[in-house]
Simulated scan of single mutants.
Amino acid sequence: MSKIVIDTKNAPGAIGPYSQGIIVGNLVYTSGQLPIDIATGELVQEVKSATKASLDNIKAILEEAGTSMDNIFKTTVFVKDLNDFNAVNEVYATYFKSNPPARSCVQVAKLPKDAVIEIEAIAVL
């Protein structure tokens, strides 16, 4: 089984030696998406807006791969401060109105660019 690299201008480019996403078989794996506003290139730091930016970047990668947010079955959310859990959930819920994916949410010591959140996803094509 071969892998296909996903590359879209509609999401931030990688800041290291990794791909935005990979397709293997009928699965799409996104790299963790920082809350970078694709229009400005700026890192979003307010947690609700940051959650939206990270999820919008995932959406763009999945669309480039030929799938959608509806086909996500697992996400991992990394937060700088677990006290932001409810604020993250408020925005996250607007992207997954029914049949939400399985999810882990963990507080981490530090994220790249000192971001407040990073989200990764696995979806089916």
Rank of each mutant, 00 (worst) to 15 (best):
V106R: 11
S49I: 09
L34E: 09
L82S: 15
T76G: 05
I36S: 04
N71V: 01
S68E: 09
L34R: 02
P35Q: 13
T51A: 15
N26G: 13
P100W: 10
E120A: 14
L82V: 12
S54E: 10
A50F: 12
A102M: 13
D56R: 00
S98N: 07
N89K: 05
T76V: 14
V116R: 01
N71G: 01
K74M: 15
N83S: 08
N86R: 08
F73R: 02
D56F: 08
V28T: 04
N57R: 07
I36Q: 04
D84K: 03
I117W: 05
N26D: 15
Y95W: 03
L43I: 13
F85M: 09
K52C: 12
C105K: 02
K74S: 04
K59M: 05
L34H: 04
L34M: 15
A60L: 03
S31W: 02
L43T: 05
N26M: 11
N86M: 08
S49T: 07
L62A: 01
F85E: 13
V77P: 00
D84H: 05
A93E: 06
V106T: 14
Q107Y: 10
P112D: 11
M69H: 03
K74H: 14
T67K: 00
Y92A: 01
D114M: 14
D56E: 13
F96P: 00
A65S: 04
T67D: 01
P100L: 15
A50R: 03
I119R: 06
T40Y: 15
V88T: 07
F85P: 00
S49E: 14
E118Q: 13
C105T: 12
R103T: 06
V108F: 13
G41L: 13
E42I: 13
D70R: 01
S49V: 10
A39M: 12
Y95P: 04
P112K: 11
A53K: 03
L82T: 02
A93Q: 07
F73Q: 02
A53M: 11
C105L: 15
F78H: 04
A102W: 07
A60D: 02
S31Q: 12
S104E: 15
L43E: 09
Y92F: 12
K48F: 12
T75I: 02
L111S: 12
D114T: 14
D56Q: 10
M69P: 00
T30Q: 11
I61Q: 05
G32R: 06
F96Q: 03
A65R: 00
D56L: 14
D70N: 00
N89R: 12
P35S: 12
I36C: 06
S68H: 06
E118H: 06
G41I: 10
T76S: 11
S31K: 07
D70K: 00
A39N: 13
T51Y: 07
A109Q: 12
Q45V: 14
G25M: 11
T67E: 08
S54I: 08
D84A: 09
